[in-house]
């Protein structure tokens, strides 16, 4: 692992995107930034700008109106990037699954690397999820990651 790859694991900048959820998970994400959880100690910064982002934290079920926005944000994020579905709604659509205005989970629209279930998710779970996503990034860099079923 060279310097750049090591730096990637030490400085994951996040952007959180709400695709039409109830805002519960967003509040838990922001709770991670508070002194109690202090995710900045892992070098994580909340950028709010896809062009500066490495980790996309997506919350909420994807509504039909939001599909092109989410795709656009994903495309604007320079690689290497990881996507984390935060909360039950983002993982599968949750209670909103099969609603007439809802497409479903985030993985229906963009590829998702890590799923964090919970309604709402605990801040500890979000931190765990980001660390897991970094683990995946590391293995992708080393070329040892195998998708399930490969």
């Amino acid at each position: 692992m060279n310097g750049t790859e090591k730096s990637r694991l030490k400085s994951p900048w996040i952007t959180h995107i709400n695709t039409g959820g109830c805002n519960g998970c967003d509040i838990e994400i922001l709770a991670c930034l508070t002194p109690k959880y202090d995710i900045e100690r892992f070098g994580i910064l909340n950028k709010g700008n896809p062009k500066h982002t490495d980790v996309l934290l997506v919350t909420g079920p994807v509504t039909k109106k939001y599909i092109h926005v989410l795709k656009n944000l994903y495309d604007q994020t320079p690689g290497p990037k990881v996507v984390i579905a935060v909360g039950t709604c983002a993982c599968s659509g949750g209670v909103f699954k099969d609603l007439y205005n809802v497409e479903g989970g985030v993985d229906q629209v963009i590829p998702v690397d890590v799923y964090i279930p919970g309604c709402a998710v605990k801040p500890e779970a979000i931190i765990d999820g980001v660390v897991l996503a970094l683990e995946k990034l590391k293995k992708l860099q080393e070329g040892t990651w195998k998708e399930v079923g490969e």
Partner: peptide, 18 residues
């Protein structure tokens, strides 16, 4: 808080992005 060399890690990471 982040490690003291955090801006350097940020810099290296940004240099390695597409």
């Amino acid at each position: 808080g982040p490690p003291l060399l955090q801006p350097w890690y940020d810099f290296k990471k940004l240099m390695g992005k597409t």
